[in-house]
């Protein structure tokens, strides 16, 4: 469905969003833009336009100045200290909240390995049958909601 104007059809951008999230769920990584172009029969400029619109919608976050998807919450495309094992795969999460967000999004059991931000001590969470195993751990939110998008990577 080649685009004929500078405005992307609304349905298309959300179909691309779903395609990208499916890739994260199935492979723990985003698809490359060429795969998106092939799947949706788009040209490189059209894919770039869709990516930029989705970034502006906060549907995912690109590395500045690139088409590299860095964050599609709760997934991270790059290694982090929050590793989630689920469905026989290893995912990276962006933070403690997103580490719990991955089994919530996948509706899957999970083992989460993280490191305490203050002591460096390893922390493990288990999610089974939709329940988080009892834990005394806490999650520290540093950035107030009103400022989340000033620097999403820091948030």
């Amino acid at each position: 469905m080649p685009l004929s104007s500078s405005h992307t059809p609304p349905d298309l951008i959300w179909q691309v969003r779903a395609f990208i999230y499916r890739s994260f769920a199935e492979t723990a990584q985003p698809p490359d833009p060429q795969s998106v172009a092939r799947h949706f029969q788009l040209g490189p400029d059209e894919v770039a336009q869709v990516y930029r619109e989705l970034d502006q919608h906060h549907a995912f976050f690109l590395e500045p100045g690139t088409l590299d998807i860095r964050i599609a919450n709760p997934f991270s495309a790059i290694p982090t200290d929050f590793v989630v094992e689920a469905n026989g795969k290893r995912y990276w999460a962006n933070c403690g909240w997103d580490a719990l967000g991955i089994p919530a999004a996948l509706h899957a059991d999970a083992r989460i390995n993280a490191a305490c931000a203050y002591s460096g001590e390893p922390i493990t969470f288990h999610v089974q049958n939709g329940q988080l195993d009892p834990t005394s751990a806490v999650v520290h939110f540093v950035v107030p909601f009103a400022r989340w998008y000033e620097d999403m990577i820091f948030t």
Binding site: W97, L100, A104, L132, P134, T135, V138, V139, F141
Partner: peptide, 14 residues
Amino acid sequence: GEVLPAAQVWTLSQ
């Protein structure tokens, strides 16, 4: 910032 029990963050995540 705010500190929440992991159990509450799990509910938030869901």
